[in-house]
Simulated assay, not measured.
Amino acid sequence: MNAPKTLLLGFFCLVAACATGKGGRASSIVMEPMFIGAEPDERLGLAEFDAATLLRKGLERQQRNDCRGALPYYERLLVQFPESRYLSAAALNAGVCAEQTGNDEGAVRYYSLITERLTHSKDYVLAAFRQAGCLRRLGKTELAERVLAAMLDREALEVPDRIEALLERADCLVELGKPYDAERWFMRALVLFRRNQRQLYLEPALGARALFGLGMLAEQR
């Protein structure tokens, strides 16, 4: 009799202990899910896998500039392991791969998983910038401006990232035909740049972009 092809879900211990008690014994155990199939998955070539394996396989292909080959691994991780600690990394890299294959719509969906659901992820800032860039290329500048506004609401945003977000938001407002609002954000970026330039060794290009934006708006009046 042939074995069934249905995937079975099992749980295996990948991390033996998060903390140890007396005698070095584990006091807690972290369980990671693993899927086991009777036959290898046609797209992945794997009969059994966990989230870490999928991420590693995707990264291996992405590093070889094979984004089309990497995406199935990231996509399967996002669908199969929605609570995985690797979810943010998979979403970010899937977004980058989608961009590189010319699929900005798909990239926006991947990045939004981080910016809307995984907002405490260390990948949030990069995902938000890339999502805004994709939205602008798609002609959805108003949505891009909202993504940048949400980023600027974060108190913990580092100064260089805050200046960059201010500049990007100002650019969006220029595209939306709101020059006076844009001028306000260019000015905020310039003030923040000058206040921190020497202490943080900020890139001069940030200040130059703010000055250029202000000059451009002045010429248009």
Score class of each variant (00 low, 15 high):
194 R>I: 00
40 P>R: 12
203 E>A: 15
116 E>L: 13
39 E>M: 11
181 D>Q: 15
48 E>P: 00
154 R>A: 05
53 T>K: 12
34 M>Y: 05
94 A>K: 09
168 E>A: 15
75 E>Q: 12
162 R>H: 06
64 R>K: 13
132 A>E: 10
41 D>T: 07
138 L>N: 04
93 N>H: 11
198 R>N: 12
66 D>M: 05
143 L>G: 01
113 L>E: 01
33 P>T: 07
45 G>R: 06
121 S>K: 10
211 L>H: 05
40 P>D: 02
103 N>I: 08
156 A>V: 12
184 R>F: 09
71 L>H: 00
83 E>P: 00
42 E>H: 09
197 Q>W: 02
185 W>A: 09
10 G>A: 15
62 Q>R: 11
179 P>C: 12
157 L>R: 12
186 F>Y: 15
22 K>Q: 07
56 R>T: 10
205 A>E: 06
67 C>F: 01
28 S>E: 10
86 Y>P: 00
126 L>F: 10
3 A>F: 09
94 A>S: 13
128 A>C: 11
45 G>Q: 05
116 E>V: 02
77 L>R: 06
61 R>H: 02
3 A>C: 08
155 E>S: 14
162 R>C: 09
132 A>C: 10
84 S>P: 02
203 E>R: 15
186 F>G: 06
83 E>H: 09
21 G>D: 10
85 R>L: 11
158 E>G: 01
170 A>S: 13
211 L>V: 14
214 L>C: 09
101 T>P: 02
106 G>L: 12
98 A>Q: 13
77 L>S: 05
106 G>P: 00
112 S>K: 10
120 H>S: 14
78 L>Q: 06
158 E>F: 06
127 A>Q: 07
36 I>A: 07
202 L>P: 03
63 Q>W: 04
160 P>L: 14
91 A>P: 00
80 Q>M: 11
38 A>N: 07
55 L>E: 03
168 E>W: 09
74 Y>F: 15
83 E>Q: 12
128 A>I: 14
90 A>H: 00
153 D>Y: 06
138 L>S: 05
167 L>N: 03
151 M>I: 07
67 C>H: 06
214 L>S: 10
21 G>V: 11
9 L>T: 15
158 E>W: 03
3 A>L: 15
46 L>I: 06
115 T>I: 04
182 A>T: 10
137 R>V: 11
128 A>P: 05
78 L>H: 04
16 A>S: 10
56 R>E: 05
154 R>Y: 02
137 R>F: 08
147 V>P: 05
81 F>W: 05
192 L>C: 06
200 L>I: 08
20 T>Q: 10
56 R>S: 07
97 C>T: 00
213 G>T: 07
131 Q>N: 10
77 L>V: 08
61 R>K: 12
53 T>V: 13
114 I>W: 02
106 G>N: 02
135 L>C: 11
96 V>L: 14
108 V>D: 00
170 A>M: 09
158 E>S: 14
127 A>W: 07
147 V>R: 14
95 G>A: 04
